[in-house]
C-alpha cells in the first residue's frame, strides 16, 4: 500500500493536449503510486495513446503538468519558475521511462542482442560485456535465449514483441508504458506475451501504465483501471469493481462492445 505522503511515481495535473483545435485531453488529473499497474481502457480515439506518448516525451503538453517521482517531466525549474522542458531536460528524465509499442519497432538493422544492448551501452554507459550479460539474462527471461544473434525479421510477431519488452527492461526503467502491445499479434501468440508481462509486473517494482483491449489481462494484473471517453476519465476503479459493477453507462456499453467483439 502506498503512503499518501509518498510522491506518486507519475502525476498528471490538469493536463491538456490539443492537436490544432482537436482537444484530445481536457484537464487530465491522476496519480499513480510507485509499483502500481494502471490500465487505460476506452474507445478508439479517446486519448489513451496520447497519454502514454506524453509520458514518453514523444508529445508535449499543451497545458498542465506531468511529474515523475516528484520532479517535473513536462516542465523544468528555471529561475525559480516552471517553464516548458527543453530537449536537454527531457533527455535527462526520459531514461527513467520505457515504452513498448503496438508495432514492436525493433531496429531491423541490428541483431536481437544488439537491439537490447545498444541503449545500455550508449546511454547508461555499460561496457559491452556488462550490456551483453544483461541482455542475455533478459532474453532468458522472455524465453528467447537462442535468438540472440537473429535479425528481428526472422522472428514471429510474438517473439519480436518479447524482444521489445527485453529491450525496454534493459534500461531498468521506473515506469513502463505498454500501448496495445498484443494488438498486432496473431491470436495464438497473445496469451504468451500477456503471461510474460504479468510475470514481470509481479516480480518487479516497475510502475506500469498500460493500454489494452484484453480485458481478462487487465482484470488479472491491474491495480486500477481508468475508463476514458473523449479525453476524460469517466471511471477510475479497481478492476474487480469496474468490470463487474461499472457505475457509468458509457463504461457498461464499452465493456459489452469489447466482450462482444472477442
Amino acid at each position: 500500500m502506498s503512503n499518501q505522503s509518498d510522491p506518486p511515481m507519475i502525476r498528471f495535473d490538469n493536463v491538456v493536449k490539443r492537436f490544432g483545435d482537436n482537444t484530445v485531453l481536457d484537464g487530465f488529473t491522476c496519480r499513480m503510486a510507485p509499483g502500481e499497474f494502471v490500465t487505460l481502457i476506452g474507445p478508439s480515439g479517446s486519448g489513451k495513446t496520447t497519454i502514454l506518448r506524453l509520458v514518453m516525451t514523444l508529445e508535449r503538453v499543451t497545458d498542465g503538468l506531468i511529474e515523475i517521482d516528484g520532479s517535473p517531466l513536462s516542465h523544468m525549474h528555471r529561475g525559480g519558475k516552471l517553464v516548458p522542458a527543453d530537449e536537454k531536460h527531457l533527455a535527462g528524465v526520459r531514461t527513467r521511462i520505457g515504452m513498448v509499442f503496438q508495432q514492436f519497432n525493433l531496429f531491423p538493422n541490428m541483431t536481437v542482442l544488439r537491439n537490447i544492448t545498444e541503449a545500455p551501452v550508449r546511454v547508461l554507459g555499460l561496457t559491452p560485456a556488462e550490456a551483453d550479460e544483461r541482455a542475455r539474462d533478459l532474453l532468458d527471461l522472455v524465453g528467447l535465449a537462442d535468438k540472440a544473434d537473429e535479425h528481428p525479421s526472422r522472428l514471429s510477431g510474438g517473439q519480436q514483441q518479447r524482444v521489445a519488452i527485453a529491450r525496454a527492461l534493459a534500461m531498468r526503467p521506473d515506469v513502463l508504458l505498454l500501448d496495445e502491445v498484443t494488438s498486432a499479434l496473431d491470436p495464438e501468440l497473445v496469451a504468451g506475451v500477456l503471461g510474460l508481462l504479468g510475470h514481470i509486473a509481479d516480480t518487479t517494482d516497475i510502475t506500469f501504465l498500460c493500454v489494452t483491449h484484453e480485458m481478462g489481462f487487465a482484470r488479472d494484473v491491474s491495480d486500477r483501471v481508468l475508463m476514458f471517453d473523449h479525453g476524460r476519465v469517466i471511471e477510475d476503479a479497481p478492476p474487480e469493481r469496474l468490470f463487474t459493477d461499472p457505475r457509468e453507462e458509457r463504461t457498461r456499453e464499452f465493456l459489452q462492445a469489447v466482450v462482444g467483439r472477442t
Partner: peptide, 21 residues
Amino acid sequence: KGQWEAATALSLPRRRVWTSV
C-alpha cells in the same frame, strides 16, 4: 516513424539515432 520513436524511448542521443538506426 516508429523507428525514431523507439530510439527516443530508449533515450538514444540524436546523433546516435542517426548513426545506429
